[in-house]
């Protein structure tokens, strides 16, 4: 069954109306620099509940799991920017680093010996974490979209 929405999309596309904006194409091409060769991708863990941890719905928990590592992220929105407080378990070891990435900026952080890290002031939008451990393939979380509450 082909649904109407795809029909209409195809019709609009054929007509040349509403073309893709140049900056959307440019952003897609630019995304290639976010490729992490040989990385393992940590999927969103269905078993973990994404939940608001504050009454005003400004903070959320999200969990990813891959290759024996669990990423727990608390993402807080405020003043149009997002802060990430993360925990990787088990402790990924001496010399491990995380990149907290949005399409527009990457913040690199050393992981504390408790497995915690913090990154603040990221723009809202797509977010992914990459964990680099000496002697191992990098592990990246699937991208999540974080938008401030309307």
């Amino acid at each position: 069954m082909i649904n109407d929405e795809y029909f209409l999309a195809a019709l609009r596309l054929s007509s040349g109306n509403d073309p893709i904006p140049g900056q959307v194409s440019a952003a897609a091409r630019d995304a290639y620099r976010l490729r992490v060769p040989r990385a393992v991708t940590a999927a969103y863990a269905e078993s973990a509940t994404i939940r608001s941890v504050r009454d005003d719905d400004s903070s959320h928990l999200v969990r990813f799991v891959a290759a024996g590592l669990t990423f727990d992220l608390e993402v807080t929105e405020g003043d149009g920017l997002i802060d990430v407080a993360g925990h990787i378990s088990p402790y990924p070891g001496e010399g491990a680093l995380v990149d907290v990435r949005s399409p527009h900026m990457t913040l690199t952080r050393r992981i504390g010996d408790t497995g915690h890290f913090v990154a603040t002031g990221l723009p809202p939008g797509w977010l992914s974490i990459v964990c680099h451990r000496p002697g191992h393939a990098p592990i990246q979380t699937a991208w999540v979209r974080i938008r401030p509450c309307p």
């Binding site: 509403d18 904006p21 900056q23 959307v24 939008g125």
Partner: peptide, 26 residues
């Protein structure tokens, strides 16, 4: 171009459509 058309056909405005397309590429 067809990804944009799909996002728009789903009823998204330009900003959300741009995010949806970007998300698919990521």
């Amino acid at each position: 171009p067809r990804m944009w058309a799909v996002a728009r056909a789903c009823g998204l405005g330009p900003a959300d459509a741009a995010d949806a397309v970007q998300g698919a590429w990521l």
